[in-house]
Design a protein around this nucleic acid. Structure first.
Length: 480
RNA sequence: GCCGAGGUGGCAGAAUGGUUAAUGCGACAGACUGCAGAUCUGUUUCCUGGGGGUUCGAUUCCCUCCCUCGGCUCCA
C-alpha cells in the first residue's frame, strides 16, 4: 500500500491515511436527492471521489465505496405532487437517469448505492436509541428531535458555535423544537405523503438520520473516510456526527473528512433551488466525458471552481485535444498493427522515463489527490513525445506500449481517454478513407475547389482533416 | 453578526522559507501547407489582494485590513 496523505477538514491538516483495518477503506459519500436531473456541480463532486476511489484501489487499498440516495425528502415530495406522481417512483426515475449519466462520465467506482427507504429498521432503531439515551425528545405531534444541547461536541466539525448561529437565516424555524438548533429525526406524517409506522406514530425519517442508519449497518459505527461537497458540512455532517456518536458511543464517526469545493456558475453557487444550473447530461453530450473530467480535475478539489459557460469548456476542449494527441497516435498504431509491430526502440532513455514518470504520477497524486499537478506532468510528457516529431511511427510496438504507460495511468486513475478515438477502430472509418483518397486525387491535379469541398463536408460531419507531409490523417471532433 | 473556503499573469489554475513562480488556454512571430486548420518551434521580461511583522531571504510563517464565495438547521 502506498503512503497517502489526505487533507482532513475536521482537524484542518493534511494527515497520513491510516485505515482502521488495512488494507480496507470504508468510503462514504453523500449522494444526491433524485428529484431533478443532475447538474455539473454534482458531476464535480462525484468525479473527485471517483478518482479518490480509483487511486486508492490502484495503490492496494480495498475500498468499499458507499454513496447514499436520499430517495425521500421534502423537495422530492413537493416535486412529485406537482407532477402528480408517486414520490418514490419519481426518485427511481431520476436515479436511473443519474446512474446512466455517471456511467457515461466514467464514474464506476461506487460499490453500493443504498436507498434511504430501504433502511427503515435501522432508522427506527437509531431514533429509538437516541430517545432511550436522552439525546432526543418527542414533540406533541409525534415528531422526534435531536436535542443539540445534550451533545457538547456539536459544532466541532464545522467550527460553528451554537449561540452564534442566526436561526432562520435561510430556513423557517420549526416552532415545535425546544431550541432552534435541534434537528428532526422523525417527522410526524402529513396526510397524503408517504409514511411508515413507528413507535412514535406514523411518519418519515429526517434527512440526517438516513445517512447514519445506512453507514451504521454498511460501514459500522466508525469508518475511514467521509466525503461530500463543502456545502453539506453544516448542518448535515454535524448532525451525522452527533447522531451516530451519541447513539453508539463510538468516536469518531469518520476518521477523515474530505470536502470538495463547490462549482460556481458565473460567481454564484450552482443549485437546483436557485435554478442556475447547467445540466450534466447535456454538457456531456456537448463536450464528451473526457473534457469534462479534465476540467474538474484541473483544479484542486477543495477550491471553489468558477464555471464560465462561454469559456471553461472551450479551454478544456483545446487542452484535452492536445494532451491526448500522442496517446491517440500510439493507440492507432497499436490497434492497427499490434504490439509486435516492428521498429526501433524508444530513443535515449525515453522508455525508462515513462516508467519513472508513472512513479512520479502516483507519488504526486498520493499527496492529497493532487490531480492538477499530475495533469501538469502529463502535459510535460505529451510535449516530450511531440518533440519526437513523427518519430512515434518509427518505434516498435513494445516500445510504444512503454511510452503509452503515463496515459494508461491517466486512463486508470483519472478516467481520461476512456472514449473511443482511434480512427481506425471507428465505425465508418473506411468511408472517410475513401473520401480522403478522392480529395488527395483532386489536390494532386490542382483542383482545390473540389479538395476544399470534401474537407468542408467532412468537417460538417465531425471529421477534422489534418494534412501532413506524407498523407492526410483525420480525427473525430464531434458534431458542431 | 458568527463560522468556513478562497484572492497568484490577458484568462483558468499549481507549487514552494531560497537559482529565471509549474501547466494549460489565449495572443504574437516563424516552420510546414495551394489555402486554412492541425502540428512543431520561439516569444508573452514588469503576475502571488492592501499594510505591517519574523527572517540573510516571504508568494509561502505571524498580525491586521479589504474583497469574493459558501454555511447558519432537510443544498453535491
Amino acid at each position: 500500500m502506498r503512503r497517502v496523505t489526505v487533507y482532513d477538514s475536521r482537524s484542518r491538516e493534511t494527515r497520513l491515511l491510516a485505515p482502521l483495518v488495512p488494507p480496507r477503506v470504508g468510503l462514504y459519500v453523500c449522494g444526491l436527492t433524485p428529484y431533478a436531473p443532475a447538474h455539473i456541480g454534482h458531476g464535480r463532486t462525484f468525479v473527485v471521489f471517483d478518482v479518490v476511489a480509483r487511486a486508492l484501489r490502484r495503490w492496494g487499498y480495498r475500498v468499499f465505496y458507499v454513496q447514499n440516495v436520499t430517495n425521500l425528502d421534502d423537495k422530492l415530495i413537493a416535486r412529485a405532487a406537482e407532477e402528480g406522481v408517486d414520490p418514490l417512483a419519481l426518485a427511481d426515475r431520476h436515479f436511473a437517469s443519474y446512474l446512466r449519466t455517471m456511467e457515461r462520465l466514467g464514474v464506476r467506482s461506487v460499490n453500493y448505492y443504498p436507498f434511504a427507504t430501504d433502511f427503515m429498521p435501522e432508522i427506527l432503531a437509531q431514533v429509538g436509541v437516541l430517545l432511550d439515551r436522552g439525546f432526543a425528545y418527542r414533540a406533541s405531534d409525534g415528531s422526534v428531535y435531536f436535542e443539540v444541547a445534550k451533545f457538547p461536541r456539536y459544532g466541532a466539525l464545522s467550527r460553528q458555535k451554537v449561540g452564534e448561529l442566526r436561526p432562520g437565516a435561510r430556513v423557517e424555524v420549526d416552532t415545535r423544537k425546544r431550541a432552534p438548533e435541534d434537528f428532526v429525526l422523525w417527522k410526524a406524517a402529513t396526510p397524503g405523503e408517504p409514511s411508515w409506522e413507528s413507535p412514535w406514530g406514523p411518519g418519515r425519517p429526517g434527512w440526517h438520520i438516513e445517512d447514519t442508519a445506512m453507514t451504521g449497518r454498511l460501514l459500522g459505527p466508525r469508518y475511514d473516510l467521509h466525503g461530500a461537497a463543502i456545502d453539506l458540512i453544516f448542518p448535515h455532517h454535524e448532525a451525522e456526527v452527533a447522531q451516530s456518536e451519541a447513539a453508539t458511543g463510538e468516536v469518531p464517526l469518520a476518521n477523515y473528512w474530505m470536502h470538495a469545493g463547490l462549482l460556481l456558475l458565473s460567481g454564484e453557487k450552482m443549485s437546483k433551488s436557485i435554478g442556475n444550473v447547467a445540466a450534466l447530461e447535456a454538457t456531456i453530450d456537448r463536450v464528451g466525458p473526457g473534457v469534462l473530467r479534465l476540467y474538474y480535475l484541473n483544479a484542486n478539489y477543495r477550491s471553489p471552481l468558477d464555471f464560465d459557460p462561454d469559456r471553461s469548456l472551450g479551454e478544456s476542449t483545446e487542452a484535452y485535444a492536445r494532451l491526448r494527441q500522442p496517446f491517440d497516435r500510439i493507440s492507432e498504431l497499436l490497434d492497427r498493427e499490434g504490439a509486435d509491430r516492428p521498429g526501433a526502440g524508444p530513443p535515449g532513455a525515453l522508455g525508462d522515463d515513462a516508467a519513472s514518470l508513472v512513479d512520479r504520477l502516483d507519488a504526486t497524486l498520493a499527496e492529497d489527490f493532487n490531480t492538477r499537478e499530475s495533469i501538469a506532468l502529463l502535459f510535460g510528457w505529451t510535449k516530450r513525445l511531440a518533440e519526437l516529431s513523427g518519430g512515434l511511427d518509427a518505434i516498435a510496438g513494445s516500445g510504444l506500449e512503454r511510452l503509452r504507460a503515463p496515459y494508461d495511468w491517466a486512463r486508470e486513475v483519472l478516467g481520461l481517454f476512456d472514449e473511443p478515438t482511434a480512427p481506425g477502430a471507428d465505425a465508418g472509418g473506411e468511408v472517410v478513407e475513401v473520401a480522403l483518397a478522392a480529395r488527395a486525387r483532386a489536390r494532386s491535379r490542382g483542383d482545390f475547389a473540389e479538395s476544399d469541398r470534401i474537407r468542408d463536408e467532412l468537417r460538417a460531419a465531425g471529421i477534422e482533416v489534418e494534412d501532413h507531409a506524407g498523407r492526410s490523417r483525420w480525427r473525430r471532433i464531434g458534431p458542431e
